[in-house]
């Protein structure tokens, strides 16, 4: 009995933790990709210019 009651919350925590990690990875991944590939700021565009062309992000 005792082991059952301790295992259940641990599993729930692990699942929550995984979902949180996935969401964070998606958010940060998207934000980084947007800055590298899409941001309109001219200095950012100029710094990432060759990468944008080489990786075929839409660029002028």
């Amino acid at each position: 009995m005792q082991t059952k009651t301790t295992v259940a919350p641990a599993v729930t925590l692990a699942i929550d933790e995984t979902i949180k990690a996935r969401v964070l990875a998606l958010i940060f991944g998207t934000v980084i990709l947007f800055s590298v590939g899409f941001a309109y700021s001219t200095p950012v565009h100029n710094a990432a210019h060759d990468t944008r062309h080489a990786l075929a992000f839409p660029c002028h």
Partner: peptide
């Protein structure tokens, strides 16, 4: 910039 793109893609891939 390649590092940024690679980290971004890796984050999505690992998700």
């Amino acid at each position: 910039a390649n590092f940024g793109a690679a980290v971004g893609f890796s984050l999505l891939l690992i998700a």
